[in-house]
Write a protein that binds this DNA or RNA. Structure first.
Lengths: 184, 184
DNA sequence: CTGATAGTAGACAGACCTGTCTGGTATCGT
DNA sequence: ACGATACCAGACAGGTCTGTCTACTATCAG
């Protein structure tokens, strides 16, 4: 029982939770609704997840692994092109319909305690993200890769908030210009 | 009755709501707790605010007016120094204890519908913020004030998220560097 | 065959949520 | 003096939340 093991019912729950949590927020979506839309019995849900918080944590880690998969599947060869591709991907996604900002930033807003497991999962993904930037910058031969990575994190966070709250066309142009200023 | 009129009880409610909403999120804090900590009867609360959503809206607009007051009280003369001062203030605030990110960004994360009055109040503040940047940039004699203002919004959003989720010392240095790159 | 595992449906407990209502007190303007 | 306004205390209704429990079914490994 329990654990991260896979099963059709568990996958359905996680997929439904991902969709509802992202679109409407974590605290606004109840277990009853998730299991109803996933077509799963309540006992089955609590068979796979010990609590709602654990489902939220699973939601965060699934988002993280999907982002890693997207980056891993990228076809660009050079680190520079990969970096450009990552931001282009985020812009494309952010300008699309149903965009609701960054799931990590949004979920963190609902979990004030930095020591909470959900927040720690978020922090881990942010560390991975920053290290991804740093490694690509270093691979591009930048001696100041560390500090540039931190600046790209600023740009990244501004991007996800901006696409959520402001005009996507404007944000896209600003991100392009800012990225060029940072990288070139 | 009702409306934005002031009264000791109403002020206490708003002040308590501001503290709890910011520290713990909007959906996590109930009316019962707010009125208990504010020392106000439930009927008195509903006498001043027609619903919780209206209290949230009042919370957002109060935060907005306080930020305007902070900017209006700044002593720096030149637009350039005011811009620098605004970001220095945000960094100081973000590095302090009890920082929980931007109340507008955090609250928006809990209100998915852009047409909701709370979201519209947030959007209005963001418009004011961007125009503030633009006017200060224009006052500093920048011909590209419009596009620079958008970039400063990116930096601002990256700042508030970064101070909330990452190491404040690192974020402060990154913001300083990024701001210098944009302004100088 | 048997026992463990995964699944269904749904009742239930106990807490918490928003919002209304009753009933009473105090202040203040006219 | 009197009516309106602002406030208090707290009960109440109706709903929703998480999490547990009962009872039953199907599958599959040993």
């Amino acid at each position: 029982m329990e654990g991260g093991r896979r099963s059709p019912a568990r996958d359905r729950v996680l997929e439904t939770a991902q969709r509802l949590f992202y679109a409407e927020g974590v605290h606004s979506v109840g277990i009853d609704r998730i299991i109803a839309e996933a077509g799963v019995a309540k006992a089955t849900f609590y068979h796979h997840f010990p609590s709602k918080d654990e489902l939220v944590r699973a939601f965060v880690t699934m988002q993280a692994s999907r982002q890693r998969a997207v980056v891993a599947a990228m076809r660009e060869e050079s680190p520079y092109e990969r970096l450009r591709g990552i931001f282009a991907y985020m812009c494309e996604f952010g300008a699309g319909p149903g965009y609701r900002g960054c799931p990590f930033v949004n979920t963190a807003a609902e979990y004030p305690d930095p020591a909470h497991p959900v927040r720690q999962a978020i922090a881990e993904h942010r560390r991975w993200n920053r290290e991804l930037y740093r490694d690509l910058l270093a691979g591009d031969g930048r001696p100041d890769a560390e500090r540039l990575a931190d600046i790209l994190m600023l740009l990244r966070d501004g991007l996800v908030v901006g696409f959520d709250l402001d005009d996507p066309v404007t944000v896209r142009a600003s991100v392009q210009e800012a990225l060029t200023r940072v990288l070139d």
